[in-house]
Computed example of a mutant assay.
Amino acid sequence: MTYKLLLTVAFATVAQLAGAQTFPDRPITLVVPNPPGGLVDTSARLLSEPLTRVIGQPVVVDNKPGASGNTAYQYVAKAKPDGYTLLISYSGYHVGNPALFEKLSWDPLKDFTPIALLTISTNVIAVHPSIPVNNLKEFIAYAKANPGKLNYASQGNGSVSHIGTEIFKQTTGVDMVHVPYKGSGPAIQDVLAGQVQVFISTPPSLMQHVQSGKLKGLAVTGKNRHPGMPNVPTTAEAGLPSFQLESWVALYAPAGTPAPVVTKLTDSVKQSLALPEVKERADTAGIEVRYLNPGQMDTLLKKELPFWSKAIKTANITLD
């Protein structure tokens, strides 16, 4: 390495460290891979206001939907790694897209630095009342006795509801026919009408219909019961501890973001999520605030990537 190049590297390092010490001194942008509304956007807006107060600079939400989330992921992956452009990452994209797309312009591990886990949303296994079952064990037995006769809805090919239900099928050995929709809205309408009998989706889509008795809630796929459906058991309580399905939302920075900036961000996020009003707003939205630090987030991602890849390939799931 030449003397001139050494000086260039040294000056760049000093400049980077100086920037990290004054961080943040201007607004921070949270890039969301989804349109307004829904789990991911709700999580971003849940964080932006308290983080603005904690970190001392405006934190703005920028929705960049498109290409199954890839538009936002590529944008942040190529952004300057200075902590001012961050990704609100959705598990369905972060662990699903690498297996669904033959070629991606971003790598889930190499192109991003984890900051924190923000929220978790469990899912609900719900069936139309016409299905003569009262609990999860009865449903599994009924489905096995009627292979290929039950239809299940999803929010679209490659969605968490699609992949998650295929994992449920692989776990239990039942055979159901997939009926994809363009979002949870049209899916829930056909489930309520009985044209499709099964839907595994998040509480915001199903909770009111389970509460009203229009659908039977058989189990919640997380570690705890949902406060809005206290009488619906977890899958573990219902006799299927091997099946859990949680959608998570996390905060990521571009790879190469200085360690002091990452520390500042994760500490500020932790403080923001601990505020009582944040939990209250999350409970109202039907989601759970759950903080994990960068190391824990990295462990979670490395665990889920091969699991989801295997499930997608085993079920031969494509976006077609």
Rank of each mutant, 00 (worst) to 15 (best):
V249Q: 09
A99F: 08
G56M: 04
T266H: 15
T122R: 11
Y93S: 11
T318E: 02
T257A: 08
T13R: 11
G38E: 09
R281N: 12
K214L: 13
G148S: 04
L265P: 01
L265F: 05
R53G: 15
T266P: 01
F168Q: 02
G69E: 03
A253E: 07
P230Q: 10
R53V: 10
P186W: 01
L275I: 07
T2R: 09
L218P: 11
P227E: 09
V59T: 03
L30H: 01
Y75V: 00
L118Y: 02
S43I: 05
L86R: 06
E288S: 14
A187V: 04
K279F: 08
S268I: 06
V95N: 00
V220T: 11
V160H: 07
V177Y: 07
P132D: 01
Q296V: 00
S242A: 15
V278D: 02
S68M: 12
A44I: 07
K80V: 14
E280K: 13
G222D: 10
K313Q: 15
P241F: 08
G213E: 07
V127M: 04
Q155G: 11
P58D: 06
V61F: 08
P306Y: 07
Y90G: 12
L5V: 12
T122V: 14
G83W: 09
A285C: 01
A12H: 04
A20Y: 00
E102Q: 14
P276N: 07
P114M: 03
V262K: 00
F199W: 08
V174G: 03
E280C: 00
P81A: 06
Y252V: 00
I312N: 10
A116P: 09
A77E: 01
W248Y: 13
M176R: 02
F23E: 05
N293M: 00
H209Q: 14
L305W: 08
Q189T: 14
G173F: 09
P306W: 06
L17W: 10
N70P: 04
K4R: 14
D82Y: 04
S105W: 10
K223F: 13
G286L: 01
V54P: 03
L86A: 07
V59R: 03
H209D: 12
N316T: 12
Q296Y: 00
P98M: 08
L206R: 01
S268V: 02
H178F: 10
K80Y: 05
S121P: 11
Y93H: 14
P114Y: 00
K216E: 03
N224L: 13
P108F: 09
A193Y: 05
I131W: 04
Q74E: 14
L7Q: 13
L7F: 07
N63M: 05
K149E: 13
E138S: 05
L136A: 04
V262R: 00
A219T: 10
T113L: 06
T171Q: 10
P35A: 14
S130F: 10
L300D: 00
G56W: 06
H209C: 11
L5N: 10
K313G: 04
M297T: 13
V54D: 09
L6G: 15
G256N: 06
D320Y: 11
P81S: 07
P276T: 01
V198E: 03
T2L: 13
K264R: 14
N134P: 02
T85A: 08
A153M: 05
P258E: 00
I188N: 06
R281V: 00
D283L: 08
E102L: 12
P58S: 05
